[in-house]
Design a protein around this nucleic acid. Structure first.
Length: 274
DNA sequence: TTGTGTTTTATTGCCTCC
DNA sequence: GGAGGCAATAAAACACAA
C-alpha cells in the first residue's frame, strides 16, 4: 500500500483522511445517509481520530465499522507472510492503515480463527476421501476373496473327482491316506476339504473375514478407527491388482501448511504452529 | 421491503508464558 | 501480574431470496 492512497475528503463532516481510492470512497459514501454520516463515525478516518478516546465517546462507539477492501487487502498480505503479530509490526500496520493497534490485533485474531476453521474443513475432506478410498479398496478385496474361494471350491471338486477315478479299484472303498488327511472347513457355508498345512499357511492370498479391517468403536471421534490389515510379505493376487501397501496408501496424509512464518519444516495440522 | 442466513468486527473470560 | 493467545459469543453489516 503506497502512502499516496491517502487523501483528504472535505465533503464528509469529520474531514477525515481516507485510506481509499476515490471509487471506494464514493462507494462508502453511498452506503451512508447524510444523517448517518453526521452521527456515525465513518469506518475510515484519521490516525488522530482513531487514537482519540473522546472521539468514541462523542460518536456512538457501539457501532461497528467495516474495514475497507484496501485495508483488508494489506492485512491479508501481512497475514500471509506471518500470521502472528509482534507489537512492532502491529503498530506499523496500525499506522499504515489508519487503525487502532487493537483493531489490527483483533483482525489478526479473527483471521487466525477463520483460517483454522477452513483448515479443519480441508482436513475433514482429506480424511473423508481417504476413508472412502479405503472402503472401496476393501470392497474390491472382498470381491477378489469370493472369486478365489469359488475357484478353490471348483479345483477341489475336480481333484476329488480325479482321485475317485484313479485310486478307487472297482468295488472297493478307498482307504484314507493319513498323510493327506482332509479337514472340512466352513468358508461361507461351503465345506471345503483343505489340508492342515494349507490352512496354517500364512501366505494365503485369500483373506478370512477375521483379517478384514476392523471398524472399531471410535467413541468421541467422528472418524472410525481402522485397524491395520496384516498382509503377508509380498503377496499378490492373481491379476496383480492388489499387493502389499497398494490398497491403503494415502490414508494418513499431512495437512496443508499454515501461512508462512511458522517454520517450513512444520506440518500436520494448524494447531501445530500456534 | 423484509425476513433470514452469513460474514465481519469486537468483547469477554480463561489460559499460558515470561 | 501483565501481555498475548484462543474459544465462545454478541452484534452490526452484508447478501439475498421471496
Amino acid at each position: 500500500m503506497e502512502s499516496n492512497s491517502f487523501f483528504f475528503d472535505p465533503s464528509l463532516s469529520h474531514g477525515n483522511m481516507f485510506f481509499l481510492n476515490p471509487a471506494a470512497v464514493q462507494e462508502a459514501k453511498s452506503m451512508m445517509t447524510t444523517e448517518e454520516s453526521s452521527k456515525r463515525r465513518p469506518f475510515f478516518c484519521s490516525h488522530e481520530d482513531l487514537y482519540d478516546d473522546d472521539y468514541y465517546d462523542d460518536h456512538t462507539p457501539d457501532k461497528k465499522r467495516r474495514l475497507t477492501s484496501q485495508q483488508v487487502h494489506l492485512l491479508e498480505k501481512s497475514f500471509e507472510t506471518e500470521n502472528k503479530l509482534e507489537p512492532e509490526r502491529k503498530t506499523q500496520l496500525a499506522n499504515k492503515l489508519g487503525l487502532q493497534p487493537r483493531q489490527v490485533a483483533v483482525w489478526f485474531q479473527n483471521r487466525r480463527a477463520r483460517w483454522k476453521t477452513k483448515q479443519l474443513e480441508r482436513d475433514f475432506n482429506l480424511l473423508k476421501s481417504s476413508y472412502d478410498q479405503l472402503l472401496s479398496n476393501y470392497d474390491s478385496i472382498l470381491k477378489d476373496n469370493h472369486l478365489l474361494r469359488s475357484e478353490v471350491t471348483s479345483l477341489v471338486e475336480k481333484l476329488q473327482a480325479k482321485e475317485d477315478t484313479t485310486n478307487k479299484p472297482p468295488g472297493q472303498v478307498p482307504e484314507a491316506n493319513p498323510q493327506q488327511q482332509l479337514h472340512p472347513v466352513n468358508m461361507n457355508q461351503i465345506e471345503l476339504p483343505i489340508k492342515t498345512e494349507d490352512r496354517l499357511s500364512s501366505g494365503s492370498t485369500v483373506l478370512d473375514e477375521d483379517d478384514a479391517p476392523q471398524l472399531l468403536d471410535s467413541c468421541n471421534s467422528y472418524f472410525p478407527i481402522i485397524a491395520p490389515i496384516h498382509h503377508s510379505e509380498g503377496h499378490n493376487n492373481r491379476n496383480g491388482s492388489v499387493n502389499d501397501r497398494s490398497c491403503f496408501v494415502d490414508v494418513f496424509v499431512p495437512t496443508t501448511s499454515p501461512p508462512h512464518g511458522h517454520g517450513h519444516g512444520e506440518s500436520l495440522g494448524f494447531w501445530g504452529w500456534t
